[in-house]
Design a protein around this nucleic acid. Structure first.
Lengths: 136, 136
DNA sequence: TCCTTGCATTACCCATTGTAGTGTTTAAAC
DNA sequence: GTTTAAACACTACAATGGGTAATGCAAGGA
């Protein structure tokens, strides 16, 4: 299942996940782990129930975000996409949707957004356009 | 209250609102209307309970999307922003968030998205960059 | 006075997310 | 081989957001 909602209010992974989900994804992007591993990691910051972690992790599997690899009695979980792949995918989809939905209005806003953000990004964009023209 | 979530799956206003909310906003963007006006408009397509419409409209007021103007026993509702203002605002916020969140990755995706969308948009973007450079 | 109209209050349903109790399986320890 | 504890399954509940609607009140007109 795909991510289907982007929250303006939040930051980082919390834009795509609930807060606990986000923490779990983050932990699993540091390597394959069992439920207990994750729970202990979370415990460092705040008392966390094992079953809570299990439930959320299993839901993430159902959503297609994690894979579950049983090994004996214990299962090990791993994100389907790397963090980079994930963010890349999301960014791409978002951008596509933005242009589909808003067309030329979005284009104006892109420049404005880049303007406030970083001069180097505009240069990069310019370069991209150059390449794009070559392929025509 | 601001819109705080953008749904990839949906189209148009349904990206920002629930389906009934979206229809109501749409109707109100054609002019100030009472609950009954809106309900009758909705009724044309599908049986619609008056109170359902009322509840949703009042929620839209709470969210800051509509203003309510009492006149005698009847209240009249009007969107706070015009459709154009609303879409413009959303597009701007989305774009800003995108750049904030993904930086240069987003830039690449912008071009790709434009590529698939429309050649004219790339030209527009190029023009925007030119203007941007002038202001430096 | 009584009925109709407009609205307020309140509620229930469903989905998502965070939370956690209870029950079951099974490997390992005794 | 029976007990125990770890891992897990199953289930449920709360909060939130959105769609739905019943009930009840208030005020104006017949």
């Amino acid at each position: 299942m795909k991510i289907q909602s982007f929250k303006f209010n939040e930051r980082g992974l919390n834009r795509f996940f609930g807060p606990l989900e986000a923490k779990i994804m983050d932990i699993l992007w540091s390597g394959e782990k069992s439920i207990k591993d994750v729970q202990q990691e979370l415990e460092k910051e705040k008392a966390t129930n094992f079953n809570t972690v299990m439930t959320v992790m299993n839901r993430l599997v159902e959503k297609g975000m994690l894979t579950k690899r049983p090994e004996g009695r214990t299962s090990f979980f791993r994100p389907v996409l790397t963090r980079e792949e994930f963010l890349n995918t999301q960014s791409k989809e978002m951008t596509q949707e933005l242009v589909d939905e808003f067309g030329s209005v979005a284009v104006s806003h892109m420049i404005e957004a880049l303007d406030e953000a970083d001069e180097a990004l505009v240069a990069q964009l310019e370069q991209k356009i150059k390449e794009w023209k070559k392929d025509r």
